[in-house]
Design a protein around this nucleic acid. Structure first.
Length: 179
DNA sequence: CCCTAGCGGTGCT
DNA sequence: AGCACCGCTAGGG
């Protein structure tokens, strides 16, 4: 996908400004807010086609809802065509996990009929181009371990806390396990 | 807690 | 073809 075929728009949320990128087919990538402050890189956003504008409203609304622990009312079309067959199978399985619920990597592997591919499932989760809306954060390691998260475990904790899966710590506490 | 072996997909040479 | 990654897991100290 050439850069010229896609455009990127900011998504302000209570958790920071995400960036949504669109191809001609739909939402193709979602990036977490930069860790260190990004000091003004506002996209001019001229010439946004009406279709993309509509998609973007859906993206923004869905993102804010998931961040609030709710189920998105509706999603924009997702362009996940860049993934391998395996990755797309994993991502589809992720989309069936409802808010507030979790699966293990091994359970996802079983669900796509590759029971020994738990580790590869982790790889596919890490390659998920549309985090949050494709809820890779709801996949935990076996026996309640938190597992990993490419964008940083802080984000995974925050998302899980928003859905009531993780207890909200009274204080900033760094743990790698639940309960 | 630690370590180890086994596992499968991906990307690079 | 080989090889070195890994968001893993089960089993054993």
């Amino acid at each position: 996908m050439k850069p010229a075929d896609s455009l990127e728009l900011p998504v302000p949320t209570p958790a920071g400004v995400f960036a949504a990128r669109y191809s001609t087919r739909g939402l193709i990538a979602l990036r977490f807010p930069p860790k260190r402050k990004s000091s003004a890189k506002p996209h001019p956003a001229a010439k946004v086609p009406p279709g993309v504008r509509r998609w973007h409203r859906l993206t923004a609304e869905a993102l804010r809802r998931v961040l609030a622990g709710k189920s998105p009312a509706s999603l924009p079309p997702l362009d996940l065509s860049a993934g391998t067959d395996f990755q797309q199978q994993v991502w589809r399985a992720l989309r069936s996990i409802r808010p507030g619920r979790t699966r293990s990597y091994a359970e996802i592997a079983r669900a796509i009929d590759k029971p020994k591919a738990a580790r590869a499932v982790g790889g596919a989760c890490g390659a998920n181009p549309v985090p949050v809306l494709v809820p890779c954060h709801r996949v935990l390691a076996a026996n309640r371990r938190l597992g990993g998260f490419s964008a940083g475990l802080e984000w995974k904790r925050l998302l899980l806390q928003g859905e009531g899966i993780l207890p909200t710590p009274p204080d900033s506490l760094t743990r790698t396990q639940i309960g």
